[in-house]
């Protein structure tokens, strides 16, 4: 079953000025289409500036595309009413690249993970504590970390907190916007293995956005290669070295 379908989406940023009649246009992505199948992981691989983060924001429902449509579970993310959109949000979560800026520096780990729970579920205090404790355990942290502030945690631990927040509502799809790029290799491996495990355990689907071919290879079932705002090739991970487009060859051969 297709969970997220992007059809022909385009996004152009315009820098307008009062004194210039000509607007400066910069097209971030053009005519991008992709499908994320339920229970699968689609990796979007691209260089810096290829439009990866724009694509992530559009897929999350945070940035309306200029053209095209994004449908999630059969509903168009940008055309549904507010109530329905909130319901869709519940099944669509995110983990950002920079784990430090992705959490409010003034909130404790518990408050961070509680936020989505409070928005969607009415839980008693003891239930809430238990849920947070379970989530922390699921992502490999301990209950002792519950009352720590973000600056008391390492990057890897904080990224686990972000993952815990993302899975708190038991979503169907998580957009992973370069979730391991700011971490060292050992932690990268741990987090990726963990994400893979979660995918199988809870039946999650991922849209994994990255420039790191190794990370994408570990976790993705299919890979779409994004070059200068366009998807040039989509193929299965198993035969990704059989790519034909010069841009994708360049990216795939660039692995260290």
């Amino acid at each position: 079953m297709s969970l997220l379908i992007a059809k022909q989406i385009s996004k152009t940023y315009t820098a307008s000025s009062w004194f210039q009649s000509k607007k400066k246009e910069h097209s971030a992505i053009t005519n991008v289409s992709f499908v994320v199948e339920s229970g699968m992981c689609l990796g979007i691989l691209g260089e810096s500036g290829a439009g990866k983060s724009t694509l992530g924001k559009i897929a999350l429902g945070l940035l309306p595309p200029d053209q095209g449509s994004i449908s999630f579970q059969g509903e168009d993310l940008y055309r549904v009413n507010r109530h329905k959109r909130k319901q869709l949000r519940r099944d669509l979560q995110v983990v950002f690249q920079d784990c430090y800026s992705a959490v409010n520096p003034r909130m404790t780990v518990k408050q961070i993970i509680e936020e989505p729970l409070r928005n969607f579920r009415r839980l008693s205090v003891s239930d809430e504590n238990r849920t947070v404790a379970n989530l922390l355990e699921t992502v490999g942290l301990t209950i002792n970390d519950m009352n720590k502030l973000p600056n008391q945690l390492s990057g890897g631990q904080l990224q686990r907190v972000n993952i815990a927040r993302a899975i708190a509502l038991e979503p169907k799809l998580i957009v992973l916007d370069e979730p391991v790029s700011s971490l060292d290799l050992i932690i990268q491996k741990q987090i990726l293995d963990h994400l893979k495990e979660l995918k199988e355990k809870i039946g999650l689907s991922y849209l994994f956005i990255s420039h790191d071919i190794a990370a994408v290879e570990v976790i993705s079932d299919r890979i779409a290669i994004l070059d200068k705002g366009e998807i040039v090739e989509t193929l299965d991970t198993s035969n990704m070295y059989a790519c034909t487009h010069p841009a994708s060859q360049k990216i795939i051969r660039s692995s260290l």
């Binding site: 924001k57 945070l62 909130k86 949000r89 950002f96 800026s101 992705a102 959490v103 409010n104 003034r106």
Partner: peptide, 23 residues
């Protein structure tokens, strides 16, 4: 990013103001 994350978590603009921006 934490404001974006809060939006994704389903917090309303008012809650984002109270929980994240004003503090």
């Amino acid at each position: 990013n934490y404001i974006l994350a809060a939006k994704v978590c389903g917090s309303s603009p008012f809650l984002i103001m109270i929980r994240h921006i004003i503090p």
